[in-house]
Nucleic acid binder design. Structure first.
Lengths: 168, 168
DNA sequence: CGAATCTCAGCGCAACTGAGATCG
DNA sequence: CCGATCTCAGTTACGCTGAGATTC
């Protein structure tokens, strides 16, 4: 863990106060710094929950994506698009999931260049168990009211869109 | 970069639709996934802005923290508390900043165990230049209305607090 | 032929564990 | 002696570049 004792003041409010003395874009700085900090705190807790299942959050996301596909398999390139990860990172993620027996590689029936990642029965069992833990922990943000979560998602949606996460 | 062509639909909305068929905590899942994605998109842009200055966002944060101190120096342990990073990570960050000539290590005058990291004149110049670029780019979220940014910070604040980022 | 798909080698960054030196 | 502070070695994870094999 990063620190034992919490600070007795909000470090981001304090940073914003100092920031405003010299520089602009204070609201942007505050929001982005808050975003980074919360992501760090939440991700650490998610990884703690997933570690007993032998998963990181990135590997978990890949497994979940496979369970959402009809055939339980997807071309690795498609997975990269959906998960926003580099092609070589997908290779690495699938490597590790395959070593753990949670997925297997299969040749694409119609395209000799592509490789399918297919979830195994063991992979499905691991996803169910890991998901049960995540849902029980409410994704590490159990104490935040649902209205606030919806407001958060709604605020982040146009940010994602403008950053090129999707069109439509 | 991760992907060339944006998806023609919102991948998180789509994931939430599938998720709801089997599992609970859909609002939490949607909010947390959105948070992860936006952090990834924003951080990549911040690092792009900082790279010409020889900085990562983590190193930039450390430098800014030093400029906010009266003496331009802080014990490394204190920096770790403020930035929420592991002691060995602070050692690594200061190592790299020192190699670049942006900070120097000094013995703590009152505590022989502690080490001060002190920003150099070159470090101050680099911070000013990097900050000018970040402010000009509005921290990679230029198109988001200020009211939305404030709402975002306000929503994230209690989440940080409950996660142990600070007290009070 | 060019373009797409994937793999591999290698680099950089950062979080972490565990061990040790130094000092209060 | 205990605890705090920092460093070092080593592991893991991930993102990326560059190069190459294979196939469309």
């Amino acid at each position: 863990m990063a620190r034992s004792t919490p600070l007795p003041f909000d470090p981001i409010d304090e940073a914003a106060r100092q920031w405003a003395k010299r520089w602009g874009a204070v609201d942007q700085m505050h929001a982005v710094t808050s975003l980074m900090r919360v992501q760090q705190l939440v991700l650490a807790q998610l990884d703690d929950i997933l570690r007993p299942h032998g998963l990181t959050f990135a590997r978990y996301e890949a497994l979940v994506l496979l369970t959402f596909s009809r055939a339980g398999s997807l071309p690795m390139g498609k997975m990269g698009e959906r998960l926003q990860v580099h092609p070589t990172s997908i290779t690495s993620i699938i490597d590790r999931l395959a070593t753990a027996g949670l997925v297997r590689r299969r040749p694409h029936p119609d395209d000799g260049r592509a490789v399918l990642a297919e979830i195994t029965d063991e992979g499905r069992a691991v996803v169910e168990a890991a998901t049960a833990d995540l849902v029980a922990a409410r994704f590490a943000i159990a104490d935040t009211p649902v209205e606030d979560l919806r407001a958060l998602s709604a605020l982040l949606k146009p940010v994602r869109r403008r950053a090129g996460d999707y069109e439509d």
